[in-house]
Design a protein around this nucleic acid. Structure first.
Lengths: 326, 326
DNA sequence: GCAAAACATGGAAACTGTTCCATGTTTTGC
DNA sequence: GCAAAACATGGAACAGTTTCCATGTTTTGC
């Protein structure tokens, strides 16, 4: 592979001049530039990005650490993050942790050893002490002291779900979802605010008897047996807010198998935006979060961090998506 | 950030010795090793991967260029690729081309400028001339001269679909799908073999009047209007093989809206494995391809290429997945 | 016409590792 | 006891860029 020295020698100029041509920086006489460009074409010279990274001490790669990119919402989020970063010349490294803290540690280490310039962190594990807070890190749906974060307005989402169900005349409410995922059950993510907002709003409207089911979703899937049990235990529930569309879909399926109808007998609202991939003959009503807006917010934060500009926490609005289940 | 020189100085040894300790290579006396390790801990030294890449001329990053990682099958494939690469110390850069050749070019360029060690290429565009065939590239579902490739046994899949529909007593067959995607309609990917296998098998069984619909799927979605039109044009079709589950789902939805029943009146087989995310009350019968097996095959090829070992094209078996539509 | 500003260029240092090679010390084997 | 093998260590070259700085030339303005 030819290097910058080969170009310089062949063009009869200094390497600094070649560098200036490549980067279009500093002063270069028109004829000199053309001469250098001609040589570059001839010997098919391509600047070595590793060497460039070496001197610049940055390599324009961002790591996205997340549990599992095959989950619909995460997949969409990573897609838009990649699009957005690409616009700014950054590349995306995808790091599926599969919720394993050991893998998260290895990926977080890439910040310290200069493998990546920045990290987008989406985790349910207790990794606070492992984060290098002197480097660019942005956290999604989770607060870490001293780490800028982006999240959907989960609280508002909970409120909106409650308001909608109240408006539709529901009397007995249930929240189903998982507040404490990950390796440390004590870890509280921002997702909890979906439940909090839901309960707060209902309380404000004088409803206090709310069934809060904190079922550990594990791989984001609710077991059918468990839901069936729940439904038979709380027969009078007629308004359900599920922490995700996946959870909502499982709930809906079981309700219908039990003979009740959705939305006639029980109304169900999920969370994510109703793009759920589960097999239902209907679309799930849902509190939608926009992967595109979130990606933009995350990337603007990342880019600001990389350029030593000030950053702010960002809360992204959610919207009610009316489907067939309310 | 401390560097290897700082460690050497503080430990009172040469940098070569520190390097040997870090890499556990060559001879180092036990006491020296311990002394160095102690200093490394104390000053929290982490070797700079960029510098390491510089001397080694490789950085253990693989790029996966694909149209869109949010599509279910591609998403799963990339997930397993990441898992597999991670096991071998490689990281995955995800490169959504959105079918744009301009973006593919930029990403392919990363091979030449040493940004990545290898590329996994999944494209429908005419990029043959842009591939640096002297470097590690593996192609999925597409043949390029001189580039090792991995593909599902698409031909066999087509045959299996035909056999299944014949076995179930279907008389009039239709294939629906898109042979020529991408920017150059002349590009033929291996996916074409699904149609070819389907037709060949039917021909062998004496069926020659086959409706082959080559509808440009674009973003892998079939328009409802178009399907409706088709269904009214070919009323007597009772056995359909769709190029993907997404296409199958669209077809099924329209058939049912038109008053016919699936599978009673029309039987439908898709392709991918029936994990489709579309809203149907039933599971799609499908020719399944295993993202996990494919990922393993791709990665073994990549790793062999990176280590100058011989590689072979690999055809991965498919299997019939019986759902509710046959 | 001349000083100042702008333009043009190249050498060398810096970035941070790995590894070859030279040198020196121990251990081994008989 | 001595040669050979194994162990141990450090200096320096090298990987391929960018950029500072020094030097020199041309243009500008009055």
């Amino acid at each position: 592979m030819p290097n910058i020295k080969d170009v310089a020698k062949k063009a009869g100029v200094g390497i600094a001049t070649v560098s200036r041509v490549i980067n279009d920086s500093g002063y270069v006489k028109k004829e000199t530039r053309e001469k250098v460009e001609k040589v570059i074409m001839e010997i098919e010279y391509v600047p070595n990005e590793i060497a460039r990274s070496m001197t610049l001490q940055k390599n324009k790669i961002v790591a996205f650490i997340l549990p599992n990119s095959t989950h619909l919402f995460f997949g969409e989020l990573s897609y838009f993050v990649e699009q957005e970063l690409f616009e700014h010349g950054y590349k995306l490294m995808i790091c599926n942790s599969s919720e394993q803290i050991a893998k998260e540690i290895i990926y977080l280490e890439m910040l310290k050893n200069n493998r990546v310039d920045a990290v987008i962190l989406l985790t349910n594990n207790d990794v606070e002490s492992l984060i290098d807070k002197n480097r660019p890190v942005v956290s999604f749906d989770r607060r870490f002291e001293g780490v800028p974060y982006v999240a959907s307005d989960n609280y508002k989402g909970g409120v909106m779900a409650a308001e909608k169900l109240l408006e539709l005349g529901c009397k007995k409410f249930m929240f189903i979802g998982d507040d404490a995922q990950g390796d440390a059950s004590s870890v509280i993510t921002e997702v909890t605010n979906r439940r909090v907002g839901f309960n707060d709003c209902l309380n404000e409207h004088g409803v206090s008897d709310i069934v809060n089911i904190e079922y550990p979703l594990g791989d984001y899937i609710v077991s059918a047996d468990y839901v069936r049990e729940l439904m038979s235990e709380y027969k009078d529930v007629d308004g359900i807010f599920a922490i995700s569309d996946a959870a909502a879909a499982a709930v809906i399926e079981e309700i219908e198998l039990s003979g009740k109808r959705v939305p006639e007998d029980v109304k169900v609202i999920g969370f994510d935006g109703g793009r759920s991939f589960l097999n239902l003959g209907k679309k799930i009503s849902s509190i939608g979060q926009s992967p595109e807006l979130i990606a933009k917010a995350i990337c603007s934060t990342i880019l600001n961090l990389c350029n030593n500009k000030p950053v702010y926490d960002q809360i992204i609005p959610v919207y009610f998506f009316g489907g067939d289940t309310t």
